[in-house]
Amino acid sequence: SPTVSMAELEHLAQNISKSHMETCQYLREELQQMTWQAFLQEEVESYQSKPREVMWQLCAIKITEAIQYVVEFAKRIDGFMELSLRGDVTQRGAPRFGWGSLVCSGALYQDDLSSSLEVVFVRMCRAFDPQNNTVYFDGKYAGPDVFKSLGCDDLISSVFDFGKNLCSMHLSEDEIALFSAFVLMSADRSWLQEKLKVEKLQQKIQLALQHVLQKNHREDGILTKLICKVSTLRALCNRHTEKLSAFRSLYPDIVRAHFPPLYKELFGSDFEQAMPIE
């Protein structure tokens, strides 16, 4: 867009990079220092021998923790809150239905963060050791075999493939930040009245990402490569949702009683929603 000045792009890139660093859960140096701490064979076996539902619950908790940081990242991006969330929630929801029923109708605002898991997968490349094919999980570096008892080997191996692939692009922190923001803005907001505003912000973020890539002297074509990853990310997340519904059909009570509310709000539109706030 010709209406965006270089100063504006620079400002947006700085805002997004700063937001990323403030909310990144772990510092890269911390993660890199720990790569030698892989799970021992007996620890791997202990994860493998956990009942399926216990491992699912553990992973749901870990994903939810990571997502809480992504939500905070989103909130700090200039323009994100103004788009719809706070304004829309209060204008559309609260007066009409009352606060309690607003919380029940999670669909009102969860669309905006439907791609938060995609951002978790993007951020995962910081915590990924491509040499050993391991990822930081529950205090140490874990290979795909740690997740065996989940019963979704295909999803796990796709997630590890994605991690390895993204690592091979050697993205810097500012590139990860801008790409995360771009992924977040690709969320499907089917209900949103101000769709054009979202598209405009996404275009700006894409330009800021391009600006950062040029500034970092990255090779041509890397932007296209990154944009292509968005569909891979979406496919991973869809697969996660499928696995979750299969799991839920076997263990409905475990999900209802023991899975974090935030996780249920984001990944099961047909789940019972969180309890209303008094």
Partner: peptide
């Protein structure tokens, strides 16, 4: 146990 709405409306939640 947090919900999405609480996270969104809270001033500050998760930062390093």
């Amino acid at each position: 146990k947090v919900t999405l709405l609480q996270l969104l409306l809270d001033h500050k939640n998760n930062e390093r």
